[in-house]
Amino acid sequence: MEYAKTYTARWADMDPNVHMRHSAYTDYAAQLRIEFLAEQGFPLPRFAELGIGPILFREDTRFLKEIGLSETIRVTAELSGLNADASRWRIVHTIYKADGRAAATVSVDGAWLDLRLRKLTIPPAEMADAMRQLTRHETYADIERTPRPA
């Protein structure tokens, strides 16, 4: 399923050049991921109950077009990679201007952290199923686990 939301670029998102500051792009991408999980039955209190949380290993933003104050933007999330047990994932967000032109892409590699043990963990089956429902990005590739050298 395609997952997207529309937002309005706020004053707090602007930099001294009066266009959206670099870190606001990643803020909108993170907000979209949290909203997606909440709509799939995993709001923030549920994460606390389960004792797990999402973490990022990598975040890469490519800036394509300026976004100005009060401009309407559309943010999408597409799955770019997932391993068999859904413990590792890759998501590509595209942030579009109101006219449909891509303003930026935000790519993230992440996993699930057991908050008690402070170690990576496998998510509940329902969460794994939710992740699998995201539309696959054109760059999708299964994430294969490679053993660590001894």
Results as ranks from 00 to 15, higher is better:
100 G>C: 07
107 S>D: 09
132 R>Y: 09
70 S>A: 14
142 D>S: 15
8 T>V: 13
114 D>F: 10
64 L>E: 13
4 A>H: 00
138 E>C: 06
86 A>L: 07
61 T>R: 02
72 T>P: 02
90 R>Y: 02
51 G>W: 07
128 A>G: 12
89 W>M: 04
53 G>F: 04
142 D>F: 01
105 T>Q: 10
35 E>P: 03
45 P>D: 15
72 T>N: 15
145 R>V: 13
121 T>K: 09
7 Y>P: 08
55 I>Y: 00
91 I>A: 03
94 T>E: 10
49 E>W: 04
109 D>S: 08
78 E>K: 05
61 T>I: 13
21 R>H: 08
67 I>S: 08
117 L>E: 15
50 L>T: 07
83 N>P: 03
16 P>N: 08
147 P>Y: 12
42 F>K: 05
134 L>Y: 05
48 A>V: 14
100 G>D: 14
16 P>Y: 00
49 E>A: 04
127 M>E: 07
70 S>N: 12
71 E>V: 03
47 F>W: 11
50 L>S: 05
34 I>V: 14
120 L>S: 11
76 T>G: 06
44 L>Q: 15
103 A>M: 04
141 A>G: 12
80 S>W: 04
46 R>C: 07
106 V>Q: 05
86 A>H: 03
113 L>P: 11
46 R>S: 06
88 R>D: 01
14 M>C: 10
9 A>P: 00
134 L>K: 11
28 Y>C: 00
1 M>N: 09
54 P>S: 00
14 M>I: 01
14 M>A: 08
27 D>A: 09
107 S>T: 12
65 K>Q: 13
97 K>T: 11
26 T>K: 00
150 A>L: 11
6 T>E: 15
124 P>G: 09
125 A>Q: 14
2 E>C: 04
31 Q>T: 14
127 M>H: 08
